[in-house]
Simulated assay, not measured.
Amino acid sequence: MAKKVVKKAAKKAPAKKAPAKKAKKAAAPAPKAVKVTATAGKTVTASALLQTVADHLGVKKSEAKALTEGYLDVVKAYVMKGAKVKIGDIGMIMIRARKARMGRNPQTGEPVKIKASKKLAFRQSAVMKAAVAR
């Protein structure tokens, strides 16, 4: 019996080496949870916001400022051209046109003509709406 085992082992083809794989680009690290220290009712300053972004990305505060300001400049440019800008699962920023209409002076009650205008508007996403409702 031992001979049969040896013969079977001898019949196996030598293992082939797998072809060398090309090096893949390093995958982006998994996003870390954002740590915020603000409590309800407090206003977050731009400086505190930039520090949180810098900590989250692991970069200097000046680099976070450059990235954030660049992002906001691009969003502003698109909105000013009339585009609706979707920001992740937060919502959409757009410009809405308001028609001319008749209103009333609350003190005298007399009719007042209100001109047509444009305003910046934000519409929250369904994901954000559900998160806020919790």
Rank of each mutant, 00 (worst) to 15 (best):
L57Q: 12
L57Y: 14
G58Q: 13
G58D: 10
V59D: 01
K60N: 15
K60Q: 14
K61Y: 02
S62A: 14
A64Y: 00
A64M: 07
K65M: 08
E69S: 08
E69L: 08
Y71F: 15
L72N: 12
V74F: 11
V74R: 15
V75P: 00
Y78T: 07
M80L: 15
G82A: 12
G82L: 11
A83K: 15
K84M: 08
K84F: 00
V85F: 01
I87P: 01
G88P: 04
G88K: 03
I90P: 00
G91D: 03
G91C: 01
I93A: 05
M94D: 03
I95T: 02
R96C: 07
R96A: 11
A97Y: 05
A97V: 09
A100T: 04
A100F: 06
R101F: 09
R101V: 04
R101I: 04
M102V: 13
M102H: 02
M102S: 10
G103L: 09
G103F: 10
G103D: 02
G103T: 07
R104F: 08
R104Y: 05
N105L: 03
N105Q: 07
G109P: 03
G109H: 03
P111K: 10
K113T: 13
K113Q: 14
I114A: 11
I114M: 10
K115I: 04
K115L: 12
K115R: 13
K118H: 10
K119H: 03
K119N: 09
K119Y: 04
L120P: 00
L120N: 04
L120Y: 07
A121S: 11
F122D: 03
F122L: 01
F122I: 01
R123F: 02
Q124K: 05
S125P: 02
A126S: 11
A126G: 01
A130W: 03
A130V: 05
